[in-house]
Design a protein around this nucleic acid. Structure first.
Lengths: 338, 338
DNA sequence: TTATAGTACGTCAACGTTGACGTACAGAGG
DNA sequence: CCTCTGTACGTCAACGTTGACGTACTATAA
């Protein structure tokens, strides 16, 4: 079941004992192939994991590649992709886009994407099931870079681009502590996600630095969405009427938190302070503007491309695990305790 | 300066009176070409508008195409692209992504994107300067589809995917009128954008239906951003203390409007009602959930791909200007006037 | 029976580019 | 004068696929 180098139409032809043209006929649904031969060819195809080479097809005139020009992309992933697009352009590369649809993923799709030979490298931004993809890349010997993956950290030679998640929340909470806050809530995301775990850990670190005991009741779990932020903040406020600050694991949940606070007739930054994570474009334009832990998303996108290009062009890369520094961006959603 | 069919390396070679290999040497910066010849070749290249064929290079082993797997994309453009990705996958096509960076656009980039021969069709989602792109597509005889373009409507055989912008706001305002609202503000976007103009017109239509005079002072201009929504709503509230509803030309501005209202100590949906446009994923999770004019973004993305694929595969297309129906999604940001 | 049509293949060349290798010529050195 | 080296090219084949065309064989009709 393993295939070192990509199988070509000729390989399949040899295995099925027919001419390449017949393989072509089968995969393009052309007539002129007996059912018996067809089955034999189909078997050979799946046996070799054959996928038609897109470049060759394109050269022949037949092909399936569409250009796409977009503006927009204002969320976290969008910003990262924006950076990637810029860098790719700079290095003279093209980006073939594949948007993961939530939930079910068909491995056959990845097989096609990678096996088609169109692609010489792979970037994965917050991929759901990166293990499958990773395995495929290894199999086809395609270099790749992982950016903010879900799941536990893969072994240390897997090229990744990350941020100092733990330090990010650590500094955010330190900032709150310095301003006199003591009762600080935390909205985490799914604990199956590596970055979420680290961000929570940063919160715990900061508290323990000043000798505050970790109170599990001050931590609630959301899913990076605004709704979750809203609802979980309500839970926190009900549970701890004297809570003076909330830190969220991303900006969207922080936005939800702000809503919940306003909804309760309180003032963000005066009655309850809020800190987010990411610094999506919207963060600066919320009311009040959100104090948040900035991830340099554009730069991360660019760095990921650079790392990949270095691999592709045989340059030795400095390090294959690049970690970017977060930065606490102070705006108006945090206030001082008198 | 016009080139019917794509120039190949051989064409350039003929013009420059050298072998194709020398052209290859020049464009790849290899040594072994005299400065004199180099200049001659360079001249021939620009004269013919030659761009190396990516597919052929790829086939030869050299190439510059990177795969990109992402999740996310929660804004308007992201949703459309999501739909496109799904449809493209369904039809067996690949999407080569190009993200426009705000402001300056280098025509040479487009030239490369299209001239490389990698692409057989083109999708443009909210493109800034679609005229340049369109011209290039025509020149290279590449089919294309325009989605929610900026600018005035091109002539009627340009394939486009749009929504019933005018009817959308018309129905939204009718809904407000039916609930007893009379003093209704409107936040438009830049009037250079076609869809913004139409949405404003829908507002005017609805008012004139019930004989309310159009009051320019109830209309303010934003730029589709949340901040603009916030600020312009403040302007409106100051100007018209008795205003009972605001309609925004997109959801982000509606979000800003909600913020401004809450900020003034008023209640959204009780004191002032708000209606947006788009129905981005976030709209449903705002507080209160936003009543808005839904654009079927995923479907529009899919339809655009379908239209393009039909062109590419020579199917006659039903119509080359597809208009989708908007739908008023009623949530909790609108209240009744007693 | 033989001509005829249809089916199921195979052969070949071409898409555009570039790596490997070959050649012609100028100038240097003996 | 001739050999040698280097530069500036040109030639050729191959990457993987498919359209155009050719061929062998079988079934049917005359």
């Amino acid at each position: 079941m393993q295939r070192k180098s990509r199988a070509t139409i000729t390989d399949v032809a040899h295995l099925a004992q027919v001419s390449p043209k017949s393989i072509s006929r089968v995969i393009n649904g052309e007539p002129g192939v007996s059912e018996e031969t067809r089955q034999r060819i189909l078997k050979a195809i799946s046996e070799l994991g054959y996928v038609a080479n897109t470049a060759a097809r394109r050269l022949r005139g037949v092909s399936k590649v569409i250009g796409l020009v977009v503006s927009g992309f204002e969320d976290y992933a969008g910003q990262v992709v924006r950076g990637m697009s810029q860098a790719a352009q700079h290095f003279g590369y093209n980006l073939v886009l594949y948007v993961q649809h939530s939930g079910e993923q068909d491995p056959a799709t990845y097989q096609e994407l990678i096996g088609s030979g169109l692609i010489s490298g792979m970037l994965m931004v917050i991929p759901y099931d990166y293990e499958i993809l990773l395995a495929l890349c290894e199999e086809y010997e395609i270099p790749y870079v992982l950016l903010d993956y879900e799941g536990s950290v893969p072994d240390e030679n897997v090229p990744t681009v990350t941020v100092t998640n733990r330090k990010g929340t650590l500094e955010a909470v330190r900032y709150l502590l310095a301003l006199g806050h003591r009762k600080i809530g935390f909205i985490t995301a799914q604990m199956s996600i590596a970055s979420a775990v680290e961000r929570l850990q940063g919160y715990r670190d900061a508290l323990s630095e000043v000798g505050i005991d970790y109170d599990p009741l001050l931590v609630v779990e959301g899913d990076f969405s605004q709704t979750a932020g809203f609802e979980q903040t309500r839970v926190l406020m009900k549970r701890h009427p004297n809570m003076t600050a909330v830190v969220a694991s991303d900006d969207l949940m922080a936005l939800g938190a702000m809503d919940a606070i306003k909804d309760a007739g309180l003032r963000v930054g005066e009655d309850i302070s809020v800190i987010g994570f990411d610094d999506i474009p919207m963060a600066a334009t919320m009311h009040p503007p959100l104090t948040t832990v900035r991830q340099p998303m554009l730069e991360m996108g660019k760095a990921a491309v650079k790392m990949l290009v270095d691999q592709l062009e045989g340059h030795s890369l400095m390090s294959n695990q690049q970690e970017f520094a977060t930065e606490l961006v102070i705006r108006q959603s945090v206030g001082k305790i008198p």
